[in-house]
Computed example of a mutant assay.
Amino acid sequence: MPLNKSYLLAAGLAVVLVIWMMMGDEIPPEQPDRSLTTEASLFRVQYEDHAGQPMHRNVRATGHVSAERNVDVIAEVSGKVTSIRTQRGLPVKEGQLLLTIDERDLPARLKQAEATLKQVTIETRGSHDLFRKGLVNESEVINAEARLASAEASLTDIRRQLDATQIRAPFTGMFDQRYVELGEYVPAGEAVARVLDTDPMLVKGRIAEKDIADVAIGDKAYAILLNGNRVDGTIRYIAAGADSQTRSYDIEMAITDGIPQSGLFDGQTATLYVPQPDVMAYFLSPALLIMTADDQLGLKVLTEDDRVRVVPVTLLSAEDDGVWVYGPGEKMRLITIGQGFVSDGEQVEAVAKNTGKQ
């Protein structure tokens, strides 16, 4: 009966295995080592105490000098340029003659139109007299008045054309450019000259969206030209809407003091500054700057109870060995080592630089 014994042995081993597995659920789990303290589990960071320094701040915009107005004078009649009366680059008064265009037959047509108007005027009066006497009907009077109106319109048009042969300055300013030469044929609708209104001269630029709330119409401002000269003025215009591409706002300063108007030129490069109240600024390595959740510059600092706090900052200026920023206030505990491993609001173990003190 060896086969039966083998079956009995196998069955016994199976029962033992089942009992062992059932007992395994009752074995208490291994207890973790709780010798570490709560403080030891905190991430350690190093910080430095910083005190802000009062510094001047300006809203800055790159721009250029511009005339108040910049107007191309258009020829209203066709013809050859018969005379040039003023040189380019010279100041001109409103209405001053710049150049003339050939009058052609306009003077003769003017005399004819004047004579025609006189004739039609007499005829119209006669029609009214005859109508009052009952010798003509009302339609004759209406026809006479129509001829009179046509004659008046013809005379007005010829006078306008004749006047348009005299190209004059539209306002007091500077005769900046002449696009035609003596004897050149000019078609109607073509620009023949440019006149600049230089009183006042302006500095135009664009300011960033983040600065728009810091500037107001009437603010005192100044600009530095490319050659280092300074001009002072007042903000007179701020665009109500931003550029759709750059999200920046047009701004203008009217120049009131500095270089004489004659020493300023339309198109000169200039940097515009609008002074702001002093701020408490910090000089630090740009490597310590981070990008905040809303894509702004920021720093990670410590609160009094050693919690991480992200504070937004604004770039004030940059130098070869660091940057000036403002925003944290009068002082801060700046995390200098370990900032990349901790998050806003996290409790940390804080160690002061070079002291080992918490």
Results as ranks from 00 to 15, higher is better:
V203I: 12
P200I: 07
S244Q: 14
E184C: 09
V348D: 01
R132W: 09
T198P: 08
L284Q: 15
V192K: 02
L202C: 11
V274C: 01
Q276I: 06
I142K: 15
R236E: 09
I217E: 08
V180P: 04
V203R: 08
L315Y: 06
L334T: 01
V16Q: 04
Q31F: 12
Q347D: 11
E138D: 04
P200A: 13
R230K: 05
T172L: 09
T124K: 02
L162S: 13
G89L: 06
D294R: 06
Q245P: 06
V136H: 03
E114D: 00
F265N: 08
G173E: 13
R88M: 07
S150N: 14
G322E: 10
S35I: 05
V231E: 00
L226A: 00
P28I: 07
S244D: 10
D219W: 09
E184L: 13
E319Q: 00
Q347R: 06
M201K: 15
V274K: 01
Q53W: 15
E76M: 01
V59T: 04
V313E: 02
D250Y: 15
P107G: 03
L3I: 13
A113P: 11
I212H: 13
Q261V: 11
V325N: 12
D266M: 01
T303I: 14
L97P: 12
M22Q: 15
T156K: 07
T172W: 08
R194V: 04
V18M: 05
R178K: 07
E138A: 13
A254E: 14
